[in-house]
Design a binder for these strands. Sequence first.
RNA 1: GGUCCGGUAGCUCAGCUGGAUAGAGCAACUGCCUUCUAAGCAGUAGGUCCUAGGUUCGAAUCCUAGCCGGAUCACCA
Length: 632
Amino acid sequence: MQIADIIRQLSIQALKAVFDIDATPESLTINETKPEFTGDYTLVLFPFVKQARKSPDALGASIGEWMQANAPEIISGFETVKGFLNLSVSNQYWVIFLQQQGGEHFGMAAPHGKKVMVEYSSPNTNKPLHLGHLRNNFLGWSVAEIYKANGYNVMKTCVVNDRGIHICKSMLAWQKFGNGATPATTQTKGDHLVGDYYVKFENELRSQSEPVLHELLEGRDVAGMDEAALQKAKLLVAKLSDGQLPDDKQSEIRDELKDMARNATPIMHEVRDMLRKWEQGDPETMALWKMMNGWVYDGFDVTYKRIGSNFDKIYYESETYLEGKQYVDEGLNRGVFFRKEDGSVWIDLSGEGLDEKLVLRKDGTSVYITQDIGLAKHKYADFPMEQSVYVIGDEQNYHMNVLKHICKKLDMPFADGIHHLSYGMVDLPTGRMKSREGTVVDADDLCDEMEKVAADKTAELGKVEGFTEAELKVLYHTLGMGALKFYLLRVDPKKRMVFNPEESIDFHGFTGPFVQYTYARIQSVLKKAGYTKETDKDLTEAGLLPLEREQIKLLEQFPGMVKQACTEMSPSVIAHYAFQVAKAFNSFYAEHSIAKAESEEKRTLRLEISYLTGVVIRNAMKLLGIAVPERM
RNA sequence: GGUCCGGUAGCUCAGCUGGAUAGAGCAACUGCCUUCUAAGCAGUAGGUCCUAGGUUCGAAUCCUAGCCGGAUCACCA
């Protein structure tokens, strides 16, 4: 049990014994004592002043005395200040903790058999990965590690969006403009090559749609548009030329016309044809699809390997997208869904504060949500988990809410365990990333840049001596990825965040390399001092200086942080904690000599503190997916 | 318009199940490398915690209203 919980228990016992007050653990406020007062943890007395019918000072004194008398091995002293009972934890407690609780796996809970699935990454096979995907990947990986550290059996999954009109766009453009180009002939990474053709498609579409839009605005008929659409377009144009509409309404109509024009272009007709052929299983189209997707997967493999991401199971949408339909029948039979006159199927979620939601089109084909229902069921069949975490951007909050409600209404056993780990978009200092303006930060480029900066800084500091070329390469990778991951994970996931390129490559302060540096420093000290673990030496008499005590206190909190990170599904908790530990150690290091301590007991004590700090940093960073170097 | 999320130092972010004088990092300024790694440490300066009410011993934190920013409310995925 952690010391904060022990103090909580003691407080409850004291209140009962001295004042006969029944307090619940939740009704107690226990904080760390502010540095300006003496003590380690503080019990807030105000809530009990009335019941005890004592002044805060008297109340605090009684409780403090009781604790000191009944748990002298834990509480060594107390002080009541203005309604706050500041409790000092005994040196003995801290030292015993340091010698006995520590170990290579400190902070990691034993397995308890509960299962959790974490779905993350979810790439499209028409574009390479970018900065937003990195936030997703790092979050997913880290949350999976955090669950493992809390004793869960974790299955990491990835759902690949490998079908649909957007995939066909790359395929069509390659057919039209590619001249048989392959990753090999062009020396281009497969995902980038395919992405390039996606861009080519969009460019072609733009140039084709401009004249069409012009025609529409002129009120002329456009080939390839059906009668109804044409009528609608004419109506919109008439509204526009009216000149009566406010600006925002006007631009809305312009956007709508633009869309219509885009859809009426020859190339959009072609791409829709291609999708139809794909759905019919046309051999030629399938072959093209398989070939190009293969290129993309080869490219993704390289990137995933580089960023240290992998999955236990990959689901391909092309294989699962038809599965949801069978549950529509089930839902209809049970009255969860209803059918409208046109044949479309809906669910009414107005009771849940949402709207009516379509689950099957009138032509009988499934929509996004239908596929997700099918996939959820499929996942559960593969891995009957208690919890299922979806790492998906916050623009899908509504969708995920709907999915959870539908699964609940269908009485799916995993429904209550569905959690949407919703994260905010990554913006640039200049605003949001826009592919049209070419401001998207490519994942591969970013990794290159980070490693290059790591190399430059290392060279600048003259720290390359004693490393082989191969070791340096590993080090640059460790540092570059550490900086990037830490930068993206230190922010609360649900918040939108700003990616400042200059700040992200900073290796000072609240950064990955700072924590990594502290770890390397510790290993260097331990190595030079010839450290070996000593558990039988009696250190309780050596006393604890303030910085020594602070450091042990911080380390003792690690298991609690691991738990908190899990309940909050927030790696940022770990990032902040890891930084705090590193920062405190550096102060301690600067103030006290470790290997040349004043006495043998102090030397042993400080080596133990250093060792456990190293363990905590390594384990905490591992939860973030960040490796730590033995030297740097 | 409905729903959800955010608004804390010049910038990026903690703190939000109510607790003591609101914290880090970056940027600025001052010091500290013949002693275990200076990618470090110590210090100075920097705040209407969006606004206005309310709840109470106590509010950045809870409630109400409003302001600003974002997302979403598709027979797209």
